[in-house]
Design a protein around this nucleic acid. Structure first.
Lengths: 209, 209, 209, 209
DNA sequence: CATGAATGAGGCTTCATTCAT
DNA sequence: AATGAATGAAGCCTCATTCAT
């Protein structure tokens, strides 16, 4: 403790303050229509200040996703190694849903990222941060399938393909349910739909079931 | 016969010419970074001319998706009514993949649309065109599941949820494979991954299998 | 009779048709916001056709005013030479009001012309057509004052100044009443206000009254 | 004292700087042909900066008129209450002429405003600012006539009509003299013409004179 | 004569980013 | 560190005018 640490803390607090505001504005307006000015106002700071903490709008956006990816990775690493693969699959479902709930708007952000304009206009550094974390996370998931195949409880299919399906299905269902909610404000069926998706997936991937 | 029809044809040809150019530019740059100027140049027209055929940039973008949705709907309507539900599911897989192949960059466009900025800033008319077609298409898919459940070959789950899963999985896998291709230019694994996804899905949804 | 004359007539009819449409659109939208396209549509012609009858948008606008000026001049020339100057003044009032009623929206147009953007961006030819007619008309009015001064019924002031006052007052009151009507749709008080204006003017200009 | 006030002043100074430039350009080119770019250049600022002080081109234009109206109102409020109505009329003449001289090009601007395109395409807020001030000013003038009628020195005519005549005559004469000057660069006769106009008006409105 | 599709210059406006204070 | 005024590039879109049919 002492002044330098306090400064450090203060700085980190500001960063968070900005990220919170950015999240709010980005999920309201989308990346393009969101303005730095508005994010700054929402963070009760001036627009110039944002540039002391983030190099540009892009980095601000990506930082939001990074937090989610970090959380995802952390959670994946904490899946109990002792579980059977099918149990791990169920744990995975919980992890993914938790990741979504951890911060729904940012999760959607992140999937948008994979699928939008922005990816095409991202600086290499930002890109590699994203892809690095993503790769690690997917490797973890892939590991579950490898294990399941090896020890015979899962059908013998390429683990990377299986991983892509899990990830695609998860992000696709999240985005699609989100779109539906945007278009016609009905109830939100995300949770039961994901539940069912994993039920089907498990039955589909289990051997001799 | 004669001049009026020729004019009509000529006009339609121009429209197509513009759409082709728009597709090219949009899929290269993404919606935001694409410029009307560039699309016009690519269509070998002046920028003003584009506005004789499309009200604005947004409508141009959406029109691309509409074509795909129309194709999707048409194909869904041509799935043989006499097929057994599991066979229809396989036919559905072919349809979806064909829809993708019909115009990959536009299909991706369309999924972007569901999941992006643009949806939030779309004119009501455009929006209702999109949602109308989408609803029709999904109703068709939903019908397959209803039938399968009714006659006992599929597990008894909510057909809308099943439909959302198919659609989410399809779009999610397409987008994700596309992202992967953008990030590291490897081979394109979309086809086998979708094959596998449907294999799992079918096993997951088949009763007593 | 004969084809050439018929052609001529037909051509003139078209011209009028266009002028009518132009008047309608100009007074609805104002010069700037009115578009050639809209005038053409209103005349049930194509935009290109308008250019067969008028060199450009500007000329179309000016032509409207010219008609009014011609009518004004004609009416001024028909003021009975035998009248006493004060009677002529009253006749002038009637002429001016008739000119306004002859085509209110065009009269307003014309006064706008004197006082707007357009004057500054008018081609020299157009300009000289306008100014020529205006000068003739004002000379006529000026003549009334000269006569009145000469024969002693009017106060001895510079006739041109008196003319400017009549003209300025007339156009100013018309424009101002028009503005008032645009802003708050009350009753139209133009007629009685002009009546009163001329009453004051006459009392002001009459000698020994 | 101190920094905030200085900032405030600085900001106001900028506003004025822009208004001065706008006045210059608008009166040279007219509203339509004037460009923001040119105004900015003339103010030695970038075009974007103008939008920090004025919402758009229209508001910039209207702001010029507002200043004149405010000056008019202030001057009208300072007409000595103790004067006799005919003296007030003469004071009014001075006020109006001073208002013109306060800023001739802007005064002309303002009369253009009453009579142009722009009125039809003005935002409601701007409109109500303009009309509010105008109404106040005209009420003041109307008050002079009311008083004169009440105490018997003026003929008994509707004070609003009299006011409209004064205002119409003033703006009409100003615009018309201005037009004449634009068309043929002679001497400027505005002052004597207005002088004469008020002389006639006074004689016209005085009772038993 | 009439058409109306095509042109393309040009304007307004927004907004990420910088920098003097 | 924080501010927020200023920048200026860049884009969308309109519309008067032309011209091939």
């Amino acid at each position: 403790m002492g002044i330098p640490e306090r400064k450090q803390k203060e700085k980190e607090r500001r960063r968070q303050q900005i990220l919170v505001a950015a999240k709010r504005v980005f999920s309201e307006k989308g990346f393009t229509k969101a303005t730095i000015e508005e994010i700054a106002k929402s963070a009760e700071l001036s627009s110039g200040t944002l540039y002391l903490y983030f190099r540009n709008k892009e980095e601000l956006w990506v930082s939001l996703s990074l937090r989610v990816l970090q959380y995802l990775l952390m959670r994946l690493e904490h899946i109990d190694d002792g579980l059977e693969p099918p149990e791990k699959l169920r744990a995975l479902k919980e992890v993914l849903y938790d990741v979504y709930e951890f911060d729904p708007s940012v999760a959607i952000n992140m999937f948008h990222l994979q699928s939008s304009d922005i990816l095409k206009n991202l600086s290499p550094e930002m890109l590699s941060e994203i892809t690095g974390l993503t790769r690690q996370a997917l490797d973890k998931i892939s590991g579950i399938f490898q294990e399941g195949i090896r020890e015979g409880s899962f059908v013998d299919r390429h683990p990377v393909a299986l991983t892509d399906i899990v990830w695609g299905m998860f992000s696709g269902v999240v985005l699609w349910e989100n779109s539906k909610n945007l278009l016609n404000r009905e109830r939100d069926y995300l949770r039961p739909t994901l539940e069912l998706a994993f039920e089907l997936l498990e039955r589909g991937v289990r051997k001799g079931s």
